[in-house]
């Protein structure tokens, strides 16, 4: 998949989203997501937040940073931090090779990269198909999970990167070793 396609879809989708409206609980909206693998698990982020998908390039590590912070890369003159999603979920450390990709997402004013194993698919999901995360209410650390969806009998967890990598308020994940 190229960035060009990505942008086109982003544009197309933006109109859809405007119509669909973001009011939670409202049924009938359709959103598109990019799904990706970390190990055997499938995750997805909303396509409108994705700016670019890059092959892994070695990052400059930042001292005294959380272990899931893989360092910073140069994206056309802008310094972008790259986070290891696997480490964030305490599933170990990704040893990135040529097949690994960094998904560049835009969170409000910030641009960050998320290191994942591979991009899987573009999903078009009606909002009513998104199922809630069990126990989410009692586990505040699951706030980064928007919901679960079943695609071709596989579970995809839709995540909100903002909740995972917002430097101002990183919720202390019970599962994270940091």
């Amino acid at each position: 998949m190229t960035t060009q396609e990505n942008d086109d879809q982003t544009l197309m989708e933006q109109t859809n989203i405007e119509q669909a409206s973001d009011i939670s609980g409202q049924k009938g909206g359709i959103k598109q997501y990019i799904s990706f693998n970390v190990g055997k698990e499938l995750y997805a982020v909303e396509i409108t937040t994705v700016r670019e998908i890059k092959g892994w390039i070695p990052a400059t590590s930042l001292p005294n940073s959380p272990d899931y912070m893989r360092g910073v890369i140069n994206m056309r003159g802008v310094i972008v931090p790259v986070f290891d999603l696997r480490t964030r979920f305490s599933r170990g450390h990704t040893e990135p090779g040529k097949s690994h990709v960094v998904i560049i997402v835009k969170l409000d004013e910030r641009t960050i990269g998320i290191l994942v194993d591979a991009v899987s698919d573009i999903l078009t999901i009606p909002q009513e198909d998104i199922l809630s995360v069990p126990d989410k209410d009692v586990n505040p650390e699951y706030a980064f999970m928007e919901g679960l969806v079943s695609v071709e009998d596989k579970m995809v967890a839709i995540i909100k990167p903002r909740m995972l990598f917002d430097m101002n308020s990183i919720p202390d994940l019970g599962v994270a070793a940091a």
Binding site: P58, L62, N74, V80, P81, R110
Partner: peptide, 23 residues
Amino acid sequence: SLEANYALVEGVSGATILGNGRV
């Protein structure tokens, strides 16, 4: 700036891009 997209890092005042494109 590192803060633009990340946060202040102790001991580091900023970053730059070297001739090889690395930060």
